[in-house]
């Protein structure tokens, strides 16, 4: 280990650097979003992500160390502290779900059918798109499990011949994109029905999509929360079967 690397670990290796950087880029994003009067590319999460990556890349270059090494040793300790709180935050969605138990009781069959059949149709379309864009089998397999949360999507990806890291990237981008574009997409595709809105947002945007759905209506929020749970289990069951069907695994 070089002297620079030792210095970086001593001064930036504690969680506080990662926490401060995360807060700084996110707050800057919020400020930009406010002064641009809600320009969609200035969504705080998107700005935070791009700016955070840029700052880490720049610092790694300035210190003359590898970017991935710098990320792992300087940012990750603090990033992990914040990341951990996604655990209780996901559990918290039981509350909006419970508060609209009336919809769950009335539409449970439609919810289940929509998620299973909707996912099957989506898988065919995603397979077709990936193939058209010119991805190899490994790339296609990495794209298929992205409807599930990262913790489920990654092992499934590995099991069907994909690359878990690429699948994780897809899950993360899903959330960032939905957070930035949901309002606009709902408008141009005329998604007016709250049950459909919620199930779609929960599937495409995971937990972040659910937070977005709550802003639309309590009904959509509850449906997004239930979608996150059910779609993960459906992906567990359906994606390996689908990959087998398309000849990705034998």
């Amino acid at each position: 280990m070089t002297a620079t690397q030792t210095m970086i670990i001593t001064y930036l290796g504690t969680p506080i650097f990662g926490i401060c950087l995360s807060l700084a880029v996110f707050l800057l994003g919020q400020w930009l979003f406010k002064i641009s009067k809600g320009f969609f590319l200035f969504q705080p999460l998107f700005v935070g992500m791009v700016l955070g990556i840029f700052v880490l890349w720049l610092m790694a270059r300035a210190f003359g160390v590898d970017t991935t090494w710098f990320y792992t040793n300087a940012y990750k300790p603090g990033g992990d502290v914040i990341f951990w709180f996604l655990n209780p935050a996901t559990i918290a969605f039981a509350v909006p779900l419970y508060k609209r138990n009336d919809i769950v009781k009335r539409f449970w069959l439609e919810i289940l059918l929509s998620l299973i059949i909707g996912l099957f149709i989506s898988l065919f379309l995603i397979y077709f798109v990936a193939k058209t864009i010119g991805m190899d089998n490994n790339g296609i397999a990495s794209m298929l499990p992205q409807a599930a949360t990262t913790a489920i999507a990654m092992p499934i990806s590995g099991a069907i011949g994909g690359t878990p890291a690429i699948t994780a990237m897809a899950c993360i981008l899903n959330a960032v994109l939905i957070y930035a574009l949901a309002t606009w997409l709902i408008k141009i595709f005329h998604l007016t029905e709250p049950v459909g809105q919620g199930l779609g947002l929960g599937t495409a945007g995971h937990t972040v999509g659910s937070a977005k759905a709550i802003q639309l209506s309590s009904a959509a929020g509850a449906m997004a929360a239930i979608a996150v749970v059910i779609i993960s289990i459906v992906v567990d069951l359906v994606v390996p079967t689908f990959a087998h069907m398309m000849g990705l695994i034998h």
């Binding site: 950087l21 999460l45 992500m49 990556i53 914040i82």
Partner: peptide, 16 residues
């Protein structure tokens, strides 16, 4: 929750 997701976004640094 959007803030809690920032580290996941920055995690993409490792996939550059």
């Amino acid at each position: 929750i959007a803030f809690l997701f920032v580290p996941s976004g920055i995690q993409l640094t490792a996939s550059l």
